[in-house]
Design a protein around this nucleic acid. Sequence first.
DNA 1: CAAACAGTTGAGCGCTTAAACAACCGTATT
DNA 2: AATACGGTTGTTTAAGCGCTCAACTGTTTG
Lengths: 122, 122
Amino acid sequence: MRRASNEIEKCDGNVTHDDIIARVREKMPDDEVLLNLADLYKVFSDSTRVKILCALQYSEMCVCDIASLLGMTKSAISHQLRTLRQTRLVKYRRDGKEVYYSLDDEHVGNIFEQGMLHVREK
Amino acid sequence: MRRASNEIEKCDGNVTHDDIIARVREKMPDDEVLLNLADLYKVFSDSTRVKILCALQYSEMCVCDIASLLGMTKSAISHQLRTLRQTRLVKYRRDGKEVYYSLDDEHVGNIFEQGMLHVREK
DNA sequence: CAAACAGTTGAGCGCTTAAACAACCGTATT
DNA sequence: AATACGGTTGTTTAAGCGCTCAACTGTTTG
């Protein structure tokens, strides 16, 4: 320990540019909004979920189809579909023994496009 | 164990809709693209990073300012800035002892907007 | 050069989480 | 009712990750 004793760091408050901080803080959205935003992107941050959403852009599919397409177990897919359901990104309908999933939101496409723009170039 | 013996599951390949699968597979982007896409969104999936990016939309800031704004240690902020640097989302310039960070990409704003659209409504 | 300060970095810890596994539920078929 | 099959769910395990702590780099000032 090189510091005096046990003062908390937190960027010791001394030499920061208080004017800038105040101005930025004023403009920033509420914490809750930014938290929800991060949570939304968290859903897109897993490649399995991205693949599922991407596939559903082209056709509604049952769990077995998706599992087969991605080469994964039905269990794994079902778990991921659950989080996609909870975040209202997919909806489903039952037909006999099969459950068909499809996209629930037109935003999904837009979000994808913006991401693609960044990924594709560079 | 209820299953016959040790056949792999992988959605037993039997009753799937092979036509749909084939059609979707044909249209899907390459795996690598979707992986990069997921990685991009992973950067936005943490609230600390989201806050940093959001703050930098309004003004360039030094590490100490950001730490003070978010009530976190300089170390934590610096670690996150590192991943933001590596993904080319922020750039920096040195001025004396201080290092000023700013957004490196106009896409950041667009990506934010699409996310906000989804978060705000509902 | 020494001290102070802004920022970076590596190691370690605790929490989160994706996938595997096994059991279970619901519907259809016989 | 019994069987089969599509899908779901709880549990466990291993990997990933954000933060803290401590040490270090680099720059300015005395």
